[in-house]
């Protein structure tokens, strides 16, 4: 199905269609979004994944008419975002990363005024507001202002607000960032439900678990480009060989010689698809000392590589500190595609 969608002939059938999208901010040296194309079918939950600064928020900005594309085009429900932003606004709703709730209004008014901005009649908007507040567990505190709302409640209220004008496409920018596990589960449940009622959803996240649970299709972005665009199951197959052997080791010194020898030795092992060695001094293992190494060996059956790989590490003069075999997860795919360095 994904392939049918990305062949470019389905523009009028797509809820979201993006073609060769480029955004370069003035004064910027590189394109924030650099030739991105994808389609989202009506009723789909589509995930946009990528490290910070990958271009996800800029892409959403273009689709929600806050950012003007430099090149290329994008349309929502066949309405072009650059040519007819007002037409697009009638179809979309946006839940941003940070609360932008109107703090001068009471909770229920936030919903009713939002609907009024969209021309929803008084009777309809009042009924809708009460229904949504009850559904999202906010009914008891609807006459408060949002100052005293927790992050989770604000998030739910923003979702309620988004639904007040019955949009066709909903944008969720890192919806569960900073939420406690209960709120997160609650939100996932709501997202599935909204989708089941026919709403098309585009969400960004760097929570792989979230993407895996919710999204029918996922595009991984980095440096303004889409690296892959597929179902979670297909993406997991992209890890060379399918499994990973992860070894933390300590070399006697920090010089690169050991690393090179080790790289060659591991790559020569039968059944190895790819070897990645990074310095353990950066990132989470900073306390491991100057010779610390993070080694990742990708292979069809990584567990069969445990013995030979440990032997290779030992022969290079380094010592194994711990060793584990990982089943493919989206996180592995993500790291495999975008690398381990910090942004």
């Amino acid at each position: 199905m994904p392939d049918e969608l990305s062949n470019g002939n389905s523009l009028e059938h797509s809820a979201i269609a993006v073609r060769g999208l480029v955004k370069r901010y003035s004064k910027a040296k590189v394109n924030a979004v650099d030739g991105v194309s994808f389609d989202v079918a009506p009723g789909e939950i589509f995930g946009l994944l990528g490290p910070n600064g990958a271009g996800k928020t800029t892409t959403i900005g273009v689709l929600t008419t806050a950012i003007v594309p430099t090149e290329g085009s994008a349309s929502i429900m066949a309405v072009d975002v650059a040519r007819d932003p007002i037409g697009v606004k009638r179809h979309i709703a946006v839940v941003p990363q940070q609360s932008n709730l109107d703090r001068s209004l009471k909770v229920r008014e936030i919903l009713t005024f939002h609907a009024a901005y969209h021309g929803v009649s008084r009777k309809t908007r009042e009924a809708l507001a009460d229904g949504l507040l009850a559904e999202l567990g906010l009914g008891e505190r609807k006459n408060e202002k949002v100052n005293r709302y927790s992050g989770g409640m604000a998030q739910r209220l923003m979702i309620a607000r988004a639904l007040m004008h019955e949009p066709s496409v909903l944008f969720l920018d890192e919806p569960t960032n900073n939420l406690d596990p209960q709120s997160r589960l609650f939100l996932w449940e709501r997202i599935r439900e909204m989708n089941a009622r026919g709403l098309t959803i585009l969400l960004t996240t760097h929570d792989m678990d979230e993407a895996d649970r919710l999204c029918g299709r996922i595009a991984v972005m980095d440096h303004g480009k889409i690296l892959v665009n597929d179902t979670p199951a297909e993406l997991k197959k992209r890890i060379p060989g399918g499994t990973v052997l992860e070894i933390h080791a300590v070399a006697p010194s920090a010089d690169g010689g050991v690393r090179e020898t080790l790289h060659a030795a591991l790559e020569a092992l039968p059944g190895t698809a790819k070897v990645e060695i990074t310095n353990g001094n950066s990132g989470p293992d900073a306390s491991a000392g100057p010779g610390a190494l993070n080694i990742r060996v990708y292979g069809v059956a990584a567990n069969a590589l445990i013995g030979p790989a440990a032997q290779a590490v030992f022969s290079s003069g380094a010592q194994v500190r711990d060793l584990s075999v990982k089943q493919p997860s989206l996180e592995e795919v993500f790291i495999f595609l975008t690398g381990r360095h910090l942004r």
Binding site: L132, E166, L199
Partner: peptide, 12 residues
Amino acid sequence: LTSTGLAGAARL
């Protein structure tokens, strides 16, 4: 909500 229906979007 189900009766108001989200599927019928643009109806509103």
